[in-house]
């Protein structure tokens, strides 16, 4: 019983290795194993990874956040425009403030008025996207600061991309807070049994409010990383990321029903999705075929990793 359970919980690590080995054998001659390609996978998935860490908290608390992709786009635009007006620091403040503001609205609507987060954030997705299109007149806003570009996505320390450090920092903080602090424990308690958590004196509304803020802030940071990597703020950045992020978290063993979450698992899930994308491109599949293959692989992996509930 416990072996079977562990087997399911750890399937993500096994799956990661299997897919890696499969691509290494079949695509080795196309440069899959070259360090530039592998570091590229890290670069491409860093934003998904950062958002997946936060999504682990949201799902663990029994909520969901669908607005993150659109918020990332909005924050990239806000950062670029802010930088245009008031310099690098002001741009960064604009990006972070965007995340805090959207998160506070999501949280307030969900916990005060009681609209399910599924609906709140679905509506917010449209609002955030509309806002970023509107303020940028749907144009790309260029970023000229070399320092910003280096720190937020473009830079390397030796051969190591800066984006890897962002991923590692997000993972480390996310993991320790979820496993080793009262906040993390209360998030898991809120999602695992809200009534019980409340009877134990935990303010579950406040917990939900806070995870939605964290999620939006992480999305804003992801948007700023996109902006740095592509040297521009654009409303399309991050589009559709919410699905990859939720898939990454669920692949990593986080329950959609709350109460169970693993930050490390989510990161492995994100890397696995990056791995699949990369492999499919190297294999020469067309974009349309990539979409189908990726969807099928994710469904398969999630189906295997989920504990079937009656």
């Amino acid at each position: 019983m416990s072996i079977l359970k562990n087997w399911r919980q750890n399937i993500i690590y096994l799956g990661f290795v299997v897919i890696f080995v499969f691509f290494a054998i079949t695509l080795g001659h196309k440069g899959f194993l070259e360090s530039t390609n592998l570091l590229n996978i890290v670069r491409q998935t860093a934003m998904i990874s950062v958002m997946a860490v936060a999504m682990t908290y949201v799902l663990s608390a029994g909520e969901i956040d669908l607005s993150i992709g659109a918020v990332a786009g909005l924050s990239s635009v806000a950062t670029a425009m802010g930088m245009d007006v008031g310099g690098v620091l002001f741009g960064i403040v604009c990006g972070l403030a965007t995340g805090a503001f959207v998160g506070a609205i999501n949280g307030a609507l969900t916990t005060r008025i009681g609209i399910p987060s599924f609906l709140t954030t679905l509506a917010m997705m449209g609002i955030a996207k509309g806002t970023s299109m509107w303020i940028s007149s749907t144009k790309a806003v260029p970023i000229l600061s070399d320092g910003y570009i280096w720190l937020f996505g473009g830079g390397n320390i030796g051969p190591i991309p800066v984006l890897l450090f962002w991923t590692l920092v997000a993972t480390a903080i996310g993991h320790v807070v979820l496993r080793k602090t009262t906040f993390g424990r209360w998030v898991l308690a809120t999602g695992g049994g809200e009534t019980a958590a409340r009877y134990s004196g935990i303010n579950t509304a406040s917990i939900k409010f806070r995870v939605l803020i964290i999620s939006s802030m992480a999305a804003a940071i992801a948007g700023m990383l996109y902006a740095g990597r592509f040297q521009t703020g654009r409303f399309q950045l991050g589009e559709g990321d919410e699905l990859s992020v939720i898939a990454a978290a669920v692949l990593g063993g986080t329950s959609l029903f709350g109460g169970k979450g693993s930050v490390v698992g989510s990161i492995i899930g994100a890397l696995m999705i990056g791995l699949i994308n990369n492999g499919l491109i190297l294999a020469g599949l067309e974009f349309s075929q990539q979409l189908i293959a990726r969807g099928a692989i994710i469904i398969l992996a999630v189906a295997i990793s989920q504990n079937r509930k009656a």
């Binding site: 009534t195 019980a196 134990s200 935990i202």
Partner: peptide, 18 residues
């Protein structure tokens, strides 16, 4: 009513007085 099923017994006993 007062136990969170996804936490361990010890985690439940010390919930909110960790």
């Amino acid at each position: 009513m007062s136990l969170v099923p996804t936490l361990t017994v010890a985690q439940n006993i010390f919930l909110n007085q960790e």
